[in-house]
Amino acid sequence: MLNKHIDKPVSVLLMSIAVLCGLILLLVLSFLVKEAWPAINDGAWRSFLVDDAWYPLEGLFGISPMILASLAMTVGAILLALPLGVSSAIFLVFYAPAPVGSVYRLMLNLLAGIPSVIYGLWGLTKLVPLIVQWQAPGVSLLAAILVLTLMILPTVALTSAAALTAVPQELIAGAAALGLTRKSQILLVLIPAAKTGIISGVLLAVARALGETMAVLMVAGNVVQNPTSLFAPVRALTANIALEMAYATGTHRAGLFASGLLLTLLVLLLAWLASRLRSQAQRG
């Protein structure tokens, strides 16, 4: 055990493994670019924006309807999950009696771990029939929004709860000393103090919703069209990749890789923003 010469080779070995793992990101990005190259070089990427339809076999690569569909789903899900998630967090931190709170937290953790394909299955067999009774065809933007809301709710609630718990005790004591009611303490003091933490959690949820494939693929109906109505079937960018990879070849395949690359860049941008906000919150 006194042999310290072993540290040098071990250190070198561990560092090479670390470098190897760090290179995975580079490998992923370079393979995406390599495979997408035929669809993006020499200005070919412009067809993604200007073509007015997605008929890859005929050389038409307009992906804007799918980008809009992905964005519409994500925005809709956030609009629902943000108020519900933040009020769940307020409930968890300030209102729930201790035993109720720990059961509630356990349930949120359990739901955060349920596979997305199961949410998709549930959405398709329970939610879609309900929507059909209201307005056909059921598989729709609305179904996708509702399923995504369920999926990101635990994330929003748990990160908001963490942010609220991290607010310094003096702030709460100060607010109480000023004679503010509990409601005013929460709305005027605690939420503003926890704002950056909550927003960074929301950004993570946005990234998850944008990148989600299975649940959206199963309930959204997958018709390539602009999301003009809540009840219209739409196709998300991720779902498109999953649907067409099986038979895509040539520039069609390249087009799918290009949309994957676009998706990755979007999600990385969001993750970067979230981490900047988080470090800002830690400093402030």
């Binding site: 793992c21 393979f31 990148g211 990755t264």
Partner: peptide
């Protein structure tokens, strides 16, 4: 290294599917 690992965490699973396939 930490930064690239954190970035990898955010990559959507369908993109891992594309990468794994290629």
């Amino acid at each position: 290294i930490r930064l690239t690992l954190d970035a990898l965490t955010g990559v959507p699973s369908i993109v891992y599917g594309l990468f794994g396939n290629a």
